[in-house]
Design a protein around this nucleic acid. Structure first.
Lengths: 260, 260
DNA sequence: AAGTGGTCTAGACCACTAT
DNA sequence: TAGTGGTCTAGACCACTTT
């Protein structure tokens, strides 16, 4: 019984000092202490935190350590600082909220369950849009690859990709690899890509997309458009992932979240 | 002519030393130097950066300053570090990509052009979903507010919000303020909200939503669902923003972007 | 054993804000 | 003028990897 009481107490108690023996570094502990206090309303939105030198004294750490903790709170959008004045608690602010593609990525993670099926590979002439995106002339030869990602037998994502056609650099074979999409998301280190630009849009499935994804048209979908560039800053790939809206949603939190 | 040549040279040249007189702090300069070199392919994906002590010598800065720069590269997902081994350049990795609501937020920013119109306020009984989200009993009284955001005369976002009905705490009046939505996004500091949970989904407009947004049904749309909690961790607001898909897209970059 | 990243110190100096 | 945040130093010690 005493053990339970003790455990309960330690769970309920809030950390107020830095534990130098703990696994967590001091600056992380301080971040958690301050976040917990802000979350409890000890420091309300708009109010000033103790000064950095005060925090040094109170928690027996050096200025650089306090600084590092404050910087983390800044990054997390929890406080803002005014030089010469102080560090202030911010109200939750939706403008800085971000959604991660982690949930999208998780589809690719599990190689056992997820398969990539190539529907078509062909050489075609660039139309106006493709020429613009890939920085080639209209009518120039480009490669079109259509793929579908299948998870547990269900088609989930339809990928349509346009590639620069360069006989001297047969990127095709590497690109055709079933794992190439996986590598894109996990970052194998073999990539010749330098950077990418991405845009996400709401869309409804066309007849063609619906057929590939084994559903009916006019269903909601996410369209993730991408352009990838090589180290010479030339576009090498333009395409879009089409994902069934009923299979994907992005979530996030703002302000102080419970799980630290 | 000489001036032009000089200017051209300085523009083309890449920074290789830390300028102590510059406005930018040393650790930012070092980040930019390293990013520029990675972007040029000096250090390819998978290869090791110079060790921290080597960077100290090369750029004449202290270990802490190098450390801070490396931490920033880590945060930006450009490198990863292995203790005892080194700091390695990562290939662009889509899994860590995030989309910001900044573009969504910008709609609220301009108070001159954007107006909030309240369509309806009523007290209703919670159905099963609302009761679940707001942690009340089914049939309990809640408040429903329907708003529409109008930009330059065009309806852009339809907001449907369910609030806890608490006669003792007349949150209604504050919530009804035209500026309350604005405050939500900008963070006025007067909020009693501690945190929020958000989810974004692809959807097609219902007849009701299309009517409000002055378009036709079955059009693509983003649905941004939210639950806000107060400092006692009780839900106070549940609702959704419905945004015309043709008026909103989220963009981002991955890897080394050109503009730093 | 040597080299690497990770944490931390105890100060310093500066720019800025408040009074 | 006193207090605040922002940057930076020149080391220290530790845990880890590589050889």
């Amino acid at each position: 019984m005493k053990v339970n009481e003790y455990n309960l107490k330690t769970i309920m108690d809030n950390q107020t000092t830095i534990d130098r023996q703990a696994f967590e570094p001091a600056y992380v502990q301080l971040v958690n202490i301050l976040k917990e206090q802000i979350g409890r309303g000890v420091y309300l939105p708009g109010s000033r935190l103790p000064s950095e030198s005060e925090l040094c004294k109170r928690y027996q750490v050096s200025p650089m350590t306090v600084r590092r903790s404050i910087n983390l709170l800044l990054d997390q959008g929890i406080v803002n600082t005014i030089q010469g004045s102080g560090t202030y608690v911010k109200a939750p602010n939706l403008s800085k909220v971000t959604f991660s593609l982690e949930e999208f990525h998780s589809i690719f993670k599990d190689k056992e369950r997820t398969k990539v099926k190539i529907l078509e590979v062909l050489i075609m002439k660039a139309n106006e849009t493709a020429a613009d995106r890939l920085a080639v002339r209209v009518g120039e030869r480009i490669i079109l690859i259509r793929r579908v990602l299948i998870r547990d037998g269900d088609p989930i994502i339809y990928h349509k990709e346009h590639l620069i056609y360069d006989p001297a650099r047969p990127i095709v074979e590497a690109e055709l690899e079933v794992t190439s999409l996986h590598g894109l998301f996990v970052g194998t280190g073999e990539t010749t890509l330098k950077r990418g630009e991405l845009a996400i849009e709401a869309a409804v499935l066309t007849k063609e997309e619906a057929d590939v994804l084994n559903t009916i048209e006019m269903q909601p979908a996410f369209r993730l458009e991408h352009i990838f560039y090589d180290f010479e800053d030339r576009p090498t790939s333009w395409g879009r992932f089409i994902c069934r809206g009923d299979r994907l949603r992005f979530t996030t939190t703002v302000g102080i979240s419970n799980k630290t």
